[in-house]
Simulated scan of single mutants.
Amino acid sequence: MSDQIARDSWKAADNSAPLPSLDELRARADGFRRVIRRRNLVEYAAGILVIVMFAMGALTAPLLALRMGSALVAGGACVVMWQLYRRGRPLSPPEHGGRMSVLEFQRRELARQRDALDSIFTWYLLPLIPGMAVIMAAPLLSLPPDAWRMPPADALFVMAAVVGVFVAVYLLNKWGARRLQRQIDEIDALMAE
């Protein structure tokens, strides 16, 4: 019975916060779009650098496997940049509309960005994995199979570092998706009032 009293008391209490002003909502949406644009510019610059460096490696590497792996990484980076544009570019908010339409737009944009971060493995990491795997295996692939042996410690360290970077990127993006989901939940609470 005491649980029911607590629930009724909580429902009866006026815990609702008023909707922020239209100017404040637009300022938040504009700030979010600026953050997304800045993130994308950094990603595009890094992508161009990766494409140029690995394309040069595809032309100049001494081993065929290194050239093939470098070409795969450069191609994978092109796929990543296209997917970033498709999934991650900020949309323009509606020019006219009240607080609810700005809230609805911001919720859709947050959900879009959350979904992009949440699916980071398939569109961001996966296109790079084949090329990186070929590059890491290149020293073995250049030897006859009967000469294969355990890679030296420094090569294992580099492989572990590459895997570590991929895992860190995955985890950071999952964390970012959860943060965006909390913002979506806040907007849902505001819109429900």
Rank of each mutant, 00 (worst) to 15 (best):
R26S: 03
S21C: 08
V35G: 08
D30I: 04
R26A: 04
A27I: 02
D30E: 11
A17G: 06
D23Y: 00
I36T: 10
A27G: 02
R28M: 14
R34C: 08
R37W: 06
D30N: 10
A29K: 03
N15H: 15
V35C: 12
A27M: 01
N40E: 11
A29W: 00
N40V: 10
I36G: 01
I36M: 08
A27D: 10
P20L: 02
F32I: 14
A12F: 05
R26N: 06
P20V: 01
D14Y: 10
R37C: 02
S16P: 00
N40W: 05
R28I: 06
R38F: 08
S16G: 09
G31N: 03
R33F: 00
A12T: 09
N15K: 13
R28C: 12
P18T: 11
S21Q: 04
S16H: 14
L19P: 04
L22E: 01
E24A: 15
V42C: 05
F32E: 00
D23V: 05
E24C: 07
S21V: 06
R38H: 10
S16R: 15
P18M: 14
P20F: 00
A13R: 12
A12K: 14
R26I: 03
D14E: 05
A17P: 11
E24N: 05
L19M: 01
L19N: 02
R28D: 02
D23A: 07
N15Y: 11
D23F: 01
R34M: 08
R28S: 10
D14T: 04
L41Q: 15
R28W: 08
F32C: 09
R39M: 00
A17K: 14
V35W: 12
L25F: 00
L25S: 01
R38I: 14
R34P: 02
D30T: 10
R26E: 03
F32T: 12
A12P: 01
L25E: 01
L41Y: 13
S21Y: 04
R38N: 11
R28K: 12
A27Y: 00
R34Y: 02
R38V: 09
A12Y: 09
V35S: 07
D14H: 11
N40K: 13
F32V: 11
L22N: 04
V35N: 13
S16W: 09
R26F: 01
A12E: 05
A17S: 14
V42G: 06
P18R: 14
N40L: 14
G31H: 03
L41C: 12
N15M: 14
I36Q: 15
G31M: 02
S21T: 13
G31E: 01
A13N: 04
A29I: 03
A17W: 12
N15C: 07
A29C: 07
E24T: 11
L22Q: 10
R26V: 04
R33M: 08
D30S: 13
D14G: 12
P20H: 00
L41P: 15
L19Q: 01
R33V: 08
N40M: 10
R38M: 07
D23I: 02
D14P: 06
R28Y: 10
L41S: 13
L41K: 15
I36N: 03
P18F: 02
R26D: 02
A17L: 15
